[in-house]
Simulated assay, not measured.
Amino acid sequence: MAAHKIAHVASNNPSVLKEIVYGIGLGIASGLLWKMHHWNNQRRTKEFYDLLDNGLINVVVDEST
């Protein structure tokens, strides 16, 4: 009897609309995370060049030993 119920539950057709909504939701979420990653990299680069322009950091190695 139990096997008959399991087979009956597994034979239901998936909802196409639900799958589309899940796909769109996952796509937007992953796109937002990717975009936040790029915004973070852009912020780091801007801070680096601002410090470099202000003379607070230097990228030339001092070899006077």
Rank of each mutant, 00 (worst) to 15 (best):
S11M: 11
V60K: 11
V9A: 15
G27P: 02
E19I: 12
E47L: 13
G31W: 01
S30N: 07
A29D: 03
E19H: 10
A2M: 03
P14G: 11
I6H: 06
D62T: 05
L17Y: 04
G25T: 12
A10I: 10
I28C: 03
H4W: 02
L32W: 06
T45N: 04
G25D: 08
L56V: 10
L33I: 15
H38S: 04
I6R: 14
I24S: 05
I57P: 01
S11Y: 01
V60C: 00
S15V: 11
V59M: 05
G23T: 10
V61L: 12
D50M: 06
A2F: 10
D53P: 00
V61P: 00
I28M: 09
Q42A: 12
L32D: 01
D50W: 01
N13M: 13
E19F: 02
D50R: 08
L51K: 12
K35N: 03
N58H: 02
L26H: 06
S64K: 09
S30P: 00
H38Q: 08
H4T: 07
L33M: 09
I57D: 13
H38V: 04
N12K: 15
E19P: 00
N13L: 15
L51Y: 04
S64H: 11
Y49H: 04
V21A: 14
K5M: 08
G25R: 02
Y49L: 03
V16H: 12
A10Y: 07
T65C: 04
L17V: 15
M1A: 15
E63Q: 07
W39R: 07
I6C: 02
L32F: 08
L51R: 11
N58E: 06
R44I: 05
H37E: 08
L33T: 12
G55W: 01
I57H: 12
E63A: 02
V21Q: 13
N12Y: 14
I57S: 10
L26W: 03
T45G: 00
Q42L: 04
A7R: 14
H4Y: 07
M1R: 04
R44H: 03
H4A: 08
N54F: 01
L32Q: 05
L17T: 14
M1K: 09
L52N: 01
L26E: 13
Y49W: 08
G25P: 08
F48H: 06
R44G: 01
S30Y: 07
R43K: 14
L26V: 04
S11D: 14
N54R: 14
W34F: 06
M36A: 15
T45I: 05
R44F: 02
Y22G: 04
L56D: 13
E19S: 15
M1D: 13
D50Y: 03
L32A: 10
A3E: 14
Y22A: 15
A2H: 05
D50I: 06
D62A: 04
L51P: 00
L33C: 02
A2N: 09
I24W: 01
A10H: 13
S15G: 14
T65A: 11
D62L: 01
T65H: 04
V16A: 14
L17E: 15
A2G: 12
N41I: 05
R43L: 11
E19G: 10
N12R: 15
A2Q: 10
M36N: 08
R43F: 12
M1E: 14
L32P: 00
R43T: 12
A29Y: 10
V21C: 07
A3F: 12
H37K: 09
R44Y: 02
